[in-house]
């Protein structure tokens, strides 16, 4: 087995991040948790994750403002993002609702809380593979 893929979890709710960590680590991923969106980019630079799991509603700076920074950065915009939120009821996550006038692409995946564990793992696996293939 090769080196474990790294997932950065940006989530202020400790129960949710512990849950996601447990799922991912049990399934062979390496994880790191960041509790504030404002610190997100620092974590990204340090850890260089293969995928980011992102909450939207967070204190101070929202997940969306982190997302905009990430997708506008030349160095990190290729990192796939799964938005996990309870705020959106639609199947599709519409960026326009959260950041009107922005031209960044929508997140690679959106999952509604509470998540389906199998779907979550499947999505993580698929997105990391696709990102790596894209890099090559």
């Amino acid at each position: 087995m090769g080196k474990a893929h790294k997932v950065l979890i940006i989530e202020d709710e400790p129960d949710v991040s512990l849950y996601l960590q447990t799922i991912l680590e049990t399934n062979g991923y390496q994880t790191a948790v960041c509790e504030a969106a404002a610190d997100g980019m620092t974590h990204v630079a340090r850890i260089r994750p293969d995928l980011i799991s992102l909450d939207i509603m967070m204190p101070h700076e929202t997940g969306m403002s982190f997302y905009l920074k990430l997708k506008k950065s030349r160095e990190y915009k290729h990192i796939p993002v799964i938005v996990i939120s309870g705020a959106v009821q639609q199947k599709e996550f519409c960026i326009e609702d959260f950041a009107p006038g922005e031209t960044v692409p929508p997140p690679e995946a959106y999952l509604e809380k509470p998540i389906d564990v199998d779907l979550f793992l499947l999505t993580v696996n698929k997105l990391i593979k696709a990102a790596l293939a894209g890099k090559k």
Binding site: E13, D15, V16, L18, Y19, T22, G86, E112, K113, P114, I115
Partner: peptide
């Protein structure tokens, strides 16, 4: 939904 996520967890 947030609470459910915690309960599921």
């Amino acid at each position: 939904k947030n609470i459910l996520m915690g309960l599921e967890g």
